[in-house]
Amino acid sequence: MRSRQWAAAAVTALAMCTATTGPAHAEGEPGPTDSAFLNTVHQGNLAEIEAGNDAQHNATTACVKDAGAMFVRDHTKMDGDVTALAGSLKVALPSGPSAEQKQQLAGIRAKAGTKAYDSAWLSAQAANHRATLTLIDEQIASGRNARITAAAKAARPVVAMHLARVSGGVCHGQAPVRTVPAGDGGMAAGTDAYGETVTAVAGGAALGGTLLACGTVLVLRRRRTRAASARR
């Protein structure tokens, strides 16, 4: 039984090696959907940064203030990645949030310093992050450009974690974290939409960990082969 389990683990790890080190898929030119995705996500990031900063000044509870700080940190990082990617693909981005996003924050800000502010902020953030997840899933399913789709996949755990933090228009605390691989540049830690607590780490670190695991499997396989030969 142990031999079978080890063999199954070895096959899985070697398959990961092949998938990780194999050639990348051909990259298509950004289509209208790809460009629209970058534009919408960029505006969403800018809106979340502004809303997060506003919450730190105008919310009444520590939980909402902390959530705002987390959103500023994570969306600033994600928008840096989006901006760099758009620049390399020559996709022009908007200069600020949309009129609708500005209007939403203005309405929430009018309740500054009251419990109504916290409630309105949390409800808006829950709706915003649900919409962003839908947008990300659409890009993953039908995106034409491989780099943009990879960026969507990398961002998804962070957006899901944000949604879990404000789900139901209620501010939830954070739980202990575990690590999972993500895209280039790394992401922040938290809980995903399925209640799993995750820490997304840089793509380079994930790649290094996979290669290390592959090397370990190969070494162990050689040792088992030698041991079997010695018993004969």
Rank of each mutant, 00 (worst) to 15 (best):
R144L: 09
A106R: 04
L89A: 05
G87K: 11
I49T: 01
F71G: 09
K77D: 15
I136P: 07
A106C: 02
A67I: 09
Q101T: 08
P94Q: 06
A51E: 01
Q139K: 10
N145Y: 04
A47K: 09
Q125D: 10
K115C: 00
R73V: 07
D54N: 04
F71P: 05
H129D: 02
D118S: 10
G113T: 02
G113W: 06
T61M: 13
R73C: 06
A47Q: 09
Q104T: 15
A99Q: 00
H75Y: 03
A55R: 10
T61A: 12
K115V: 00
P97N: 13
R109K: 04
T134C: 07
D118T: 14
Q125S: 10
I148W: 11
P97E: 12
A47G: 12
P94E: 07
D81N: 11
A116D: 07
D118K: 11
A154D: 11
A69D: 12
S98H: 09
T60S: 09
Q139S: 10
A69I: 09
G68H: 10
G68A: 10
A124V: 14
R130V: 12
K102G: 15
L133I: 05
S123C: 04
A155M: 01
T114Q: 03
G87F: 06
L89I: 07
T114D: 03
R156A: 09
A51L: 02
P157S: 03
R73T: 11
V159L: 15
A59F: 01
E48L: 04
G87T: 05
L133T: 01
V91F: 15
L46V: 12
A110W: 13
L105V: 09
Q103M: 14
V159Y: 15
Q125E: 13
T61P: 13
E100K: 12
S119G: 02
W121A: 13
H57K: 01
V72C: 12
L105N: 08
Q56I: 06
D54Y: 01
T76M: 12
A112P: 05
C63G: 15
P157N: 05
A86L: 13
S142G: 08
E48Y: 03
F71Y: 14
V72N: 12
K65T: 04
T83F: 10
Q139T: 11
L93A: 05
T61K: 12
L85Q: 00
I148P: 05
K153H: 00
S98F: 11
A59K: 02
G107S: 02
D79V: 08
S142T: 11
A86P: 10
D79C: 08
V91L: 15
D81H: 12
N128Y: 10
A124M: 14
V64W: 02
A86Q: 10
G143F: 10
G113Q: 02
I49K: 00
L89H: 08
S119P: 03
N58A: 05
N145L: 04
Q125V: 08
I108M: 08
S95Y: 04
V158P: 02
H75I: 00
G143V: 08
A146E: 13
A127F: 03
Q103Y: 09
A47V: 07
N145Q: 01
K115E: 00
L93P: 06
A51T: 04
T76Q: 14
A131S: 15
P157A: 05
N45T: 00
G80I: 01
A120V: 11
Q56L: 07
T132M: 07
Y117T: 02
A106I: 02
W121M: 14
H57R: 00
K90I: 04
V72E: 13
G80Y: 00
A84R: 14
R109Y: 01
W121D: 11
